[in-house]
Design a protein around this nucleic acid. Structure first.
Length: 265
DNA sequence: ATGGTAGGTCTCCTA
């Protein structure tokens, strides 16, 4: 048995409203590191005591009032941090932490992009593509080693990442231009999508709309949440899971938490 | 073709 590291990513849709759910998840699954998106809170108003009490003594975060916001809570020491304002949107959408064990973790919340997949009529879609271009550019000039990238990337790139590939191809999150831009980001950083490495085909979802009644039975989901690793880590053994059960909790986030356990780090 | 739900800066914006 070698050392291992368990990492979780979860779009929590307000950390102040759902603090108890995050703590419940941590007690149940004991990841070493949890990366949260859509905290919707300034950093100084993120509740931290409950996390500390469970052994998550290290936090790095980028926040703003009301919208966006990303945070990393860790049992493992975080010795450095930085945040990048991709595409100069002045949004809190990225935080990175260097762990003492040599790993770097990037936590992203990519813009959702609005409803209309048209850069001329929808500023939010233009900003989403600009954000992806900026990510690509940054990874072009910053080679990643012992790196993990997680987050709500708001793109479901694979046919089996959506409930209906044909219908969703005109819907923001699964359009060809977004999928192409995301693949450029992946190529720039030599990233490996661990969920699709383990499961090349077969439906995988991490998000179900609040608007869909009986989300569980209809199961019209999308895989918007991702865990990637840099190519130097491709030899690591790992296991992934999507904790769909949390989507069925009372007053849930619309996203399920996703996990990867790395063995022999 | 439309509307459906949820959270926060709360009758309007974002997802």
């Amino acid at each position: 048995m070698g050392a291992f590291m368990k990492i979780c990513s979860w779009n929590i849709n307000s950390i102040r409203l759902r603090e108890a759910q995050v703590l419940r998840l941590l007690k149940q699954h004991c990841p070493d590191v949890i990366c949260l998106q859509e905290c919707k809170s300034p950093v100084e108003k993120i509740p931290i005591q409950g996390f500390r009490d469970l052994g998550y003594e290290h936090m790095v975060a980028s926040g703003q009032k009301g919208y966006n916001g990303v945070a990393i809570f860790s049992k493992l020491p975080i010795i450095d941090e930085f945040s990048i304002d991709f595409a100069d949107l002045k949004h809190a959408r990225h935080i990175a932490g260097h762990l003492e064990n040599g790993f770097i973790i990037h936590n992203f919340y990519v813009p959702a992009g609005g409803d209309e997949p048209n850069i001329d009529t929808n500023l939010k879609f233009a900003q989403k593509l600009a954000f992806l271009d900026a990510m690509k550019k940054w990874f072009d000039s910053n080679e990643q080693k012992r790196a993990i990238l997680v987050g709500d990337l708001n793109i479901a790139p694979h046919e089996d990442d959506v409930w209906d590939h044909k219908k969703l191809s005109k819907i923001v999150s699964h359009t060809p231009i977004e999928i192409e831009k995301l693949s450029e980001v992946m190529r720039a950083g030599n990233w490996i999508d661990v969920f699709r490495k383990a499961t090349p085909n077969g439906k995988l979802y991490s998000w179900w709309s609040y608007r869909a009644k009986n989300w569980h039975l209809a199961d019209k989901g999308r895989r918007l949440d991702h865990i990637w690793v840099s190519s130097d880590l491709s030899g690591l053994k790992f296991e992934n899971s999507i904790f769909r059960e949390a989507r069925g909790w009372d007053r849930p986030s619309d996203h399920a938490p996703i996990f990867t356990v790395f063995d022999e780090i």
